[in-house]
Nucleic acid binder design. Sequence first.
DNA 1: CGATAAACGAGACGGTACGTCGCGTCTTCTG
DNA 2: CAGAAGACGCGACGTACCGTCTCGTTTATCG
Lengths: 223, 223, 223, 223
Amino acid sequence: MSKIKKLASKKNETKPLSRPSAVGRKRDDSLDSAIIEAALNALAEVGFDRMTMDLVAAKAKTGKASMYRRWSSKTELVRDALVFMNRHSVELTELPDTGSIRNDLLALVKPKSAEQSERKMRVLAGLGSFFAEYRKISEDISTHIFGGWEKANAQLLTRAIERGEISKSADVEGTCQVISAMTAYTTTLLLKTFDKTTYANLLDNILLPALRSGTKPSGTKKA
Amino acid sequence: MSKIKKLASKKNETKPLSRPSAVGRKRDDSLDSAIIEAALNALAEVGFDRMTMDLVAAKAKTGKASMYRRWSSKTELVRDALVFMNRHSVELTELPDTGSIRNDLLALVKPKSAEQSERKMRVLAGLGSFFAEYRKISEDISTHIFGGWEKANAQLLTRAIERGEISKSADVEGTCQVISAMTAYTTTLLLKTFDKTTYANLLDNILLPALRSGTKPSGTKKA
Amino acid sequence: MSKIKKLASKKNETKPLSRPSAVGRKRDDSLDSAIIEAALNALAEVGFDRMTMDLVAAKAKTGKASMYRRWSSKTELVRDALVFMNRHSVELTELPDTGSIRNDLLALVKPKSAEQSERKMRVLAGLGSFFAEYRKISEDISTHIFGGWEKANAQLLTRAIERGEISKSADVEGTCQVISAMTAYTTTLLLKTFDKTTYANLLDNILLPALRSGTKPSGTKKA
Amino acid sequence: MSKIKKLASKKNETKPLSRPSAVGRKRDDSLDSAIIEAALNALAEVGFDRMTMDLVAAKAKTGKASMYRRWSSKTELVRDALVFMNRHSVELTELPDTGSIRNDLLALVKPKSAEQSERKMRVLAGLGSFFAEYRKISEDISTHIFGGWEKANAQLLTRAIERGEISKSADVEGTCQVISAMTAYTTTLLLKTFDKTTYANLLDNILLPALRSGTKPSGTKKA
DNA sequence: CGATAAACGAGACGGTACGTCGCGTCTTCTG
DNA sequence: CAGAAGACGCGACGTACCGTCTCGTTTATCG
């Protein structure tokens, strides 16, 4: 079903099953990417639910039949569009090598272009907050659900700083956000439960070591 | 529009704007929570898209009119239901105080009851993967988008371990997941761009200190 | 259920069953007629279907409960309102007696007042064409259904005049309308089938005698 | 909006305004009549108000969208269905010609088939008494409104017979019904006022000539 | 004169049908 | 045959009305 292989790798896999019969008009390959581009733009502009198949067809100047000839459902199209959008994140062959792990990690996220990166962010937002109009849900989740938890955690951390258990220069706010982020990520994307063991691992292996460490190597400040 | 304030705090009932007129039948407050409970159960059981308003009405033994009298749309109802579900996360007055920051943080996530916690997870999952059927999107996002990035990052970290820049006992996999989690969280929930400054802060304040720290305090193993 | 007896005849029927208990506030009799007036006005203004019970309640400055205390349904209210509207048509005791049957019949329809008569017409129209906005249905029925029939009948009558079977001065158009009217009246109001026997009676007893009669007594012209 | 022209006459398809664009799937003309047939059956079986659009869609094995693509509302559909039902009443080209006006008029109402005629009656009844349950309204109208009037008119006519002004064999009951029928027909279907002039014309041209005529030509009896 | 009981106005409630919109399929014409 | 256009079957949405109910208030009779 996925069209991405064809798009990503320009090889022609010779189509063993349900190959296009030799006669008749050939598939217009440029339509594949036109539809995906239209879908990504629609996702970024109006979000998943307001992205209707008719809208995408109109943006791609095609008809729905040509879309469903390529993808069996809206979901499949979105999946492929997302994979396509991130097709350049995966070049394991040409990893940066600056000699510093910090610079290596940062180099990896250098986007192709500013506007590409901008759209990428909006696409993810349009996905996560199902509806463009309804991204209030996101705000409410972050404010009411994770916001409350982060405030409580921050208070616990501040107290720990006061009694000298963790470093004075610990990044309290950042740590709390990591906790929220891992919870949301695990439940909504990995579709696993964020249980106590997972949480303890996060604390023991990453957060507590960082909190105890008294040094901030590069001295950057928060934005 | 939000009914949660009334549900959460049974107090400030002065109602300056659009207060219920003194005459006429009073709103049945028990219906508010009955509908929200029904909505949460529906979310947990069938996910956002399969949760129809008629289904929720049937579960709450009411009619759609009474639901739309309270919330102007399905989305508004879901927002309030989510806030309601987490109304107890915010009790800043009774924070745990075990003397250890690790135990404090863990104590905070002790749920009221096992089944409450179970449903909470399912509700979040039902939200994130909008449709039961469509959780493939989630899988693809984690596999293709973040999966590729995590693999690359893991390779960079392994190399750094080899050249002695970070600790041999560093939690490579966990660190990579935190990076993915923070990206997803920032874009889909906080609705902000995950830019280079934000990333650098995460690295400098939390991840790099943890990676350099050679100790794993509590000795817990990964799940 | 019917309130009309009480309104029409001011006698107090001593209420054998479900009589109003001696204690408690008394029914406001002026409300009965206020509601009926409001209902008639609503019927005349917007027709049966757009006459909502809330609208009538608002017009009568009362609540729906007070209406349903008197009539068990919208239909019952409308029935009584119609009867009330025509309560003066039935005074068999004081029939006109002018010595001429023509003047007697005409005298009977002298309305109480012009505006009363006007509203009466509009009420009937609002009933027959269920919706005010939708009285197009009526137009279509009269145009397409009865219109076609009337045209055909008119042609038959004209031919009969030509061959001298009926009077030259026969009222062709009027006769055709009577046929349509009797069909509609029998089926929609009397709820009987307008079968061949009924039709033959109408022809033999009324229409054919009139058509053969060569005289137009009073010489009035059509409007 | 009306689809009947297309159904009735298979000709003039030039379609100057809002013609179906040359491209795209064509409207399925058989659906037009399938829906109309379903609507007529529903009207005959359950009456106007119990005829829901979902019911008609189910009977026609289609969806509501396809119905609303053709007619903008339930009312429009009913209008066209009624016109369609009577599309054969208008064959002016093949009028009967028996040599007797009586037989001509009767021959015109010979239905295409018995069951067609049967349904036609039930459709009209389902219309006039808007709801199956609400045909009480019809009964009340005929009983209280026209019934009272007819009784009074009958008394006037009887008196006129007694003093010899009209024929002894005059059809008193039939004449009174014609008066009621013309009133109802004029107001509810023609949507005109039944004023004194109209009434006088009816009397002078049809009813009084018939009443004065002393002969009952064909000797048929009342049903 | 206060208690009791019912009517009243307002409006919430459960239910049902409406008319709209989107998905994924099918059909028609054009290249 | 593929492409563009758009009709089709289905199902959920959000609205409106019916007839019932529950409030708090007003009006009447009874103890």
